[in-house]
Nucleic acid binder design. Structure first.
Lengths: 231, 231
DNA sequence: GTCTGGACTTGACGCTTGTCAAGTGTCTTG
DNA sequence: CAAGACACTTGACAAGCGTCAAGTCCAGAC
């Protein structure tokens, strides 16, 4: 049962579609799938990469401690994502750790065989270019948020982006708020207050892990620039 | 200053070395080189990409305004860098603007021909993968800085990284401090204070645009975390 | 049922940092 | 030489946000 399910999931990934049957089969040779519980660590900041991780289900976060006391969540990824290829490609130590957030099925591809495939399978290189391009844009957006928007604006911006993916007005949070707070570059307390502010403004309504956008217009205003005085 | 000079510069780029004579010649077909003064805008946030920009000399910054009143500098790039390939690859609007910081010679490659070459020249795709991987790491380091380090720590961290590139102890700033401040995610005033603090701590000595590291140990203390240089 | 632990909220407080404003120095311009 | 422009510094001040601490709510254990 596990094998069937895993293979099906592998097939559904964007990577599989992009590189085709043969290359995917080659990548799978020597790879293993694992079902991991929350808090499992896939790889650790500062260590040399030995595997490439393909997320088949669940959610995984890139977490950085960087020598300081607390941790930052850089980004979280869901099914279909190929994790932290840069470290593998360059054979350099990871800059972040990979942590399972919700029970996740992970395909682990040996780094050496991934690098070899990258060199002699043009389709793989081409697919990786596209993936990296998309990931780059995620980070750029995030840096823009961090450098020129205040905490409540960042939340509003994030909500709009998450919403953009699905056309509904209800957003089911897939991660604890603590994780989202750190992803947004703020403390959990500040996230609480930012959420309260958006409710106050009539932009959203929150019930536990479900956020309903009741005023898309108000939400866009809050994301824009007018949050809490001080132009 | 004419064709010779430009061709020589093109040859010296990492890209040229990676993809070889033939592919580089193909990319150059239809491309034009331009010598641009400071404040010249290569491309603008929100517009569709029409060119890929290869920096041959000088320095170029990626700047974002993101709808808010002030601007943030995302990153600056020098000779050999290929700018904002992601937008071109994905045919999506730029997330940032490209602005010349110090007089720069730029090779402009038509986006369409770059995309075509990317599809049928494996060497190019492979080279782009490596470049994107290095750029990804720059952004990751930056996000870590922004999320878990205070302003003076970010400066110390940045100094150590800039220093890592060359083995000396003197750092000649290639950009006005105002630009560096925005790259570090702080106001020019805060940068001034951060510099003063590092001098106070006996870590550096500043004379105009030259920063001398007089206490590498003290500087590392101030950075307060591990620095993983290399690209 | 009560107890306990975890996720989240709320309040109080202080540090960091951005903003506004004035001051210094240098380079250019008339 | 004076006037202006510009880059940077310094000081005063308030806002934003993180931290500490308490409080609420809820699920699971017993």
């Amino acid at each position: 049962m596990a094998i069937n399910r895993t293979l099906a999931l592998v097939h559904e990934t964007e990577l599989a579609r992009a590189v085709g049957e043969r290359v995917m089969a080659r990548l799978m040779k020597g790879s293993v799938a694992q079902l991991l519980p929350p808090r499992a660590v896939l790889f650790e900041e500062g260590t040399e990469p030995e595997m490439v991780h393909l997320v088949l289900s669940g959610r995984v976060g890139l977490v950085a401690s960087g020598g300081t006391d607390h941790e930052a969540v850089i980004e979280t990824f869901g099914a279909g994502s190929l994790l932290v290829v840069p470290a593998v490609i360059l054979s350099l130590p990871y800059l972040v750790s990979g942590v399972v957030l919700t029970e996740a099925r992970i395909m682990m591809i040996p780094a050496a065989s991934f690098r070899r495939a990258l060199d002699d399978e043009p389709a793989l290189a081409r697919a990786v270019v596209d993936m990296q391009a998309r990931h780059w844009r995620l980070l750029i957006e995030q840096i823009k948020d961090l450098k020129l928007r205040a905490a409540p604006q960042r939340l509003a911006q994030w909500l709009l982006r998450e919403l953009g993916a699905g056309p509904g007005t209800v957003l089911q949070l897939g991660e604890p708020k603590r994780i989202i707070a750190r992803r947004l570059g703020m403390s959990p307390e500040s996230l609480s207050r930012a959420i309260a502010a958006l409710e106050e403004a009539g932009a959203i309504h929150v019930e536990g892990r479900a956020i309903t956008v009741v005023g898309r217009r108000a939400l866009e205003m809050a994301a824009g620039g007018m949050t809490n005085t001080r132009g």
